[in-house]
Write a protein that binds this DNA or RNA. Structure first.
Lengths: 156, 156
DNA sequence: CCTTTAGTTGAAGTGCACTTCAACTAAAGG
DNA sequence: CCTTTAGTTGAAGTGCACTTCAACTAAAGG
């Protein structure tokens, strides 16, 4: 019963591809020791880090923010359950807000798309404060949100 | 009071960059007539299409699926409010499911990350049936979800 | 000991949803 | 009529989160 894992083992147990694990290492999200032959050997505690990374992604957090969060873990010792709980708690309000916005979106969906009042710029569905992760990746917004736009009256 | 819009006008009223509008046209999501000088002129009804596109993106639907949805609108006539309501209703179950999964994630967050029971492959947080849009874009999964993985007992 | 399986690297590729650029033309204002 | 502002195109670039590839080396099994 070895107490370190090869990259293949960590991959199988975490469900994360080896290439992704190497990528995480490059970003400083996880770490590994090396064998004499330069192969990675992961401490078992890394398994929990990987779990935290994947769960955080579900919450809609970017790898960069996840890295920042992980950096706040204690340096010397293996993080305790409480350390992890504290870390995960920090995603909580984010998750709450996300759920709130989606619920709002759902409750206004028929009405707002269907009706004639669709006054884009002021619509709940249109201006959810860019907090939804559904926005997707890619280059940043070109129009920062036109402040000089007319009140936007909808057609007949 | 012209009843067609230039790309700049449509951009300001919809809050969507001109480059994005051209992109949507290339993908077949919206359409425009052309002036003698080859400039785009949008019918006012396109405003609602753009609104539908942006709202659908909030729901987490890809442009490709949005295109498919828009293709189901009636061909000859301008879509009625009911047409739009029907279309938006089709996102509803998706939204419900997404909200359900996020709520589940929230309710298990502390417990699952903090405790020693974190049994990755079987965890609610880990296997939400790839239905969350939070997964992000990019290349597809390499490991299709290892079926041959051991029961994954956690350390200590 | 040989073969197979698993690992290594850096560089390049992928997919989505765009934006940016260069080099140009059209339309609107004074 | 000239200038400014707004439009046109195709090609290339961007950011994120990875994957894929080529050319290799290490470790494990029989």
């Amino acid at each position: 019963m070895p107490d370190s894992l090869t990259i293949g083992e960590l991959s199988v147990r975490s469900g994360v591809a080896p290439s992704a694990l190497r990528y995480y290492e490059r970003l400083g999200l996880i770490r590994a020791d090396r064998t004499g032959g330069n192969q990675r050997r992961y401490a078992r505690a890394e398994l929990r880090r990987v779990a935290f990374i994947r769960i955080s992604q579900q919450v809609g957090v970017s790898l960069d923010e996840i890295r920042a969060a992980l950096d706040s873990l204690p340096e010397g010792r293996t993080p305790s359950p409480q350390d992890w709980a504290q870390l995960s708690a920090s995603w909580r309000s984010r998750l709450d807000e996300k759920i709130r916005l989606l619920a709002e979106l759902r409750d206004n969906l028929d009405g707002c798309i269907g009706c004639g009042c669709l006054s884009l710029q002021r619509c709940v569905l249109y201006n959810p404060g860019d907090a939804l992760a559904g926005e997707g990746p890619g280059a940043r917004l070109m129009l920062p949100r036109p402040a000089d736009a007319p009140p936007a009256v909808t057609p007949g």
